[in-house]
Design a protein around this nucleic acid. Structure first.
Lengths: 207, 207
DNA sequence: GTACGCTGTGAATCACGATTCACACACCCG
DNA sequence: CGGGTGTGTGAATCGTGATTCACAGCGTAC
């Protein structure tokens, strides 16, 4: 398994798949299209992946992992900058999520809401659960620190994640006319604060 | 077009389609299955509907219209009972949405999140937009009445609708062990209040 | 009674994209 | 140099459901 030569084509296929999704969504990313864009024949794809689904599972995994890293990094950066507030941190993480989603709407839509094949859907669900778990953890910390009142952590986490996703792809699906990313991010921050029950006092530590 | 005789079979097909969705979701509702359950041959379906998609568009429309009616009725009832609070009203509407979704999880999942064919998806989107518009309207009223602070109405409406949907189908998809409908509804009410910025004071009028 | 139109039938057909496979080509190893 | 292995090709094949259509049955109009 000489990962050198094989890796080249493999990587090219992964890139082609991601690019197709970014441009026209999952539905436009057929095996033929991916192969063509990668500059190989359809059969070649099957030298490197068990099936179309496996290829896209890997694409999703890669992209979601990257997003996760970026989000967590934003949270950590804020913490490193001296913030002790779990909610401020969470807000920063979700704002990062939003900024990145707004920068790549089509990809965000594919990642969050577009119909995809079962295995890929499972991968998406797994990541959504990770995000939700992270939010839940933040909420628990915030409650312990008396930043926010007690609440149903699991429900709220799911609702916040779902709400942010829906509010971001909503403005995307109808492809409304460039609703000013900064304004959207600001609205999302405000929504998150309210949804988790953070009074204005919560800001003190954050900014 | 003798709607009498034709209506019988037509209605039977619509019922069969809905029942199949309720039992096993949209993916299990093939033309053959629907026809069999309705007690007719596959070809008969095409005597009454242009295509599979048209059939299911009608199913979705019927069900969603029914849900909408039930929700609005709950809101109106509260208002008729003397409540003057737009938020209490909205809360009641969404709680009704939740109660009904929890009673018929599979259907709710199909309506909210399951992959469906494009035309059906468009119908789903249209209804989601109606619900969102209703929420937005309620928020505007509440803001005008000083029930809640000013906020990005469009964003918040989308986020609340999306959040409620996600939090409800989340507990359903993995078919978690009966998480006590009443508790879920209570959590949802609390979430909605917080998300729209309704302080505890908002309750005064409601209950 | 017969012509006509509406329903119903279900096996055959079609569409469409994923998947396979017999056939190269290139490179390395002995 | 003769195998052997990894990689690439792309036309043919497959699978899955939706859709069609030639052939009834049946009621109504005339």
């Amino acid at each position: 398994m000489s990962t050198a030569a094989a890796g080249g084509t493999r990587a090219r296929l992964l890139d082609a798949a991601r690019e197709l999704i970014e441009q026209d969504g999952y539905s436009a990313a057929s095996v033929l299209q991916v192969a063509e864009r990668a500059g190989v024949a359809a059969g070649t794809l099957y030298r490197h992946f068990e099936s179309k689904e496996e290829l896209f599972v890997e694409v999703f995994r890669d992209v979601c992992t990257g997003e996760e890293r970026a989000m967590l990094a934003a949270g950590d950066a804020l913490q490193a900058a001296g913030s002790r507030s779990a909610i401020a941190c969470l807000e920063e993480v979700l704002a990062t999520f939003a900024r990145r989603a707004l920068r790549n709407p089509r990809l965000a839509w594919a990642l969050l809401a577009e119909p995809v094949d079962p295995l890929v859907d499972a991968e998406r669900l797994a990541y959504r659960m990770r995000y939700t778990a992270y939010v839940a953890q933040s909420l628990r910390r915030a409650i312990a620190d008396r930043e926010i009142p007690g609440l149903d952590v699991e429900f709220t986490a799911a609702a916040v994640v779902g709400g942010c996703g829906a509010a971001l792809v909503g403005p995307l699906a109808p492809s409304s006319g460039t609703p000013a990313p900064d304004a959207v991010v600001a609205s999302l921050r405000a929504f998150v604060r309210r949804a988790v029950g953070a009074g204005l006092g919560g800001l003190t530590d954050a900014r």
